[in-house]
Nucleic acid binder design. Structure first.
Ligand code: FES
Ligand code: FES
Lengths: 143, 143
DNA sequence: TTTATATCAGACCTTTTTGTCTTAATATAC
DNA sequence: GTATATTAAGACAAAAAGGTCTGATATAAA
């Protein structure tokens, strides 16, 4: 089971990370991505297509076609990606699964959870692709 | 989609919360729980059975039977419940879905995530049923 | 004995993930 | 320009996982 993001969303994050490491403007094919990241081909294809539709990536068909970031990497935050794939429900829903989530009618761990949820949210909003790429260029990083 | 715990686990947390509000030793039937919590009968039955097997609850068949906490409520933490149903993978797996998670070969948000994950973990370990019940007795609470 | 309740087995549905195949676009070679 | 190779886009179905429902059986209280 996935932790907090869906499988799709995990793959999206991985793929965008990978694209962030490529020289600006270079198109990367699905084949290369699936090979490097070990992601099922058509599942990834669909995800990239969604991200393209949402204007986070651009695509090009034909020889030497592929995908690239649509915007300057410091304008794309993790939240943009997560929101495009999973939506932003996690930021509003009750962690215990109750139908509503608010301080007016909270569950027994609402207050603690709301605090952590805000931290997660602000990390997603703050962290952008440029910073991710910077981290990933350190020698110990995995891509 | 569920946030971080599976549906089963959410239901488990809800049910145990409810049991925590009952007088010590009182048996509560599945019927009462499903009615109050709007949870499918046999799904909850299976979950409670699992929690019983894991020694978190006790069960009794027959008229006026039902379920009750197996231990003193201040010895049951949220983590016990989560671990029994979902396991403790969330505490070790990569949030971006990479096969390993460690500082030696981290993903681009490992460091930030690891920090939040630890907070969540320590909340789960710290928060026990007694405290949950205390929160829930406040007038604005939902059960 | 009767009745209320947990337990157990299995079918069924829904969502998510993966795989097969076809079509459309386009860069490049000629 | 035309042909060809390469690539994304799209339809569709299979497989897997997660969740829900039906019904029967075992157990214990009254
Ligand atoms: S009501 Fe449960 S997290 Fe807000
Ligand atoms: S490697 Fe991704 S969270 Fe640790």
């Amino acid at each position: 089971m996935s932790i907090i993001f869906s499988r799709q969303c995990e793959y999206a994050l991985q793929a965008v990370s990978y694209l962030a490491l490529q020289p600006a403007g270079k198109k990367t094919s699905i084949r290369e991505l699936t090979k490097k990241l070990k992601i099922p081909y058509h599942f990834l294809a669909k995800i990239l297509q969604d991200l393209t539709y949402k204007k986070l990536l651009v695509s090009q068909k034909g020889p030497s076609g592929g995908f690239a970031l649509a915007q300057s990497p410091d304008q794309i935050t993790l939240f943009h990606i997560v929101e495009a794939i999973d939506g932003s429900d996690f930021a509003h829903k009750c962690v215990m699964g109750f139908p509503e989530c608010s301080g007016k009618n909270p569950c027994s761990i609402h207050h603690q959870w709301a605090k952590m949820r805000d931290e997660i949210y602000s990390m997603l909003v703050t962290e952008n692709i440029t910073e991710m790429a910077r981290e990933m260029k350190k020698p110990e990083y995995r891509l």
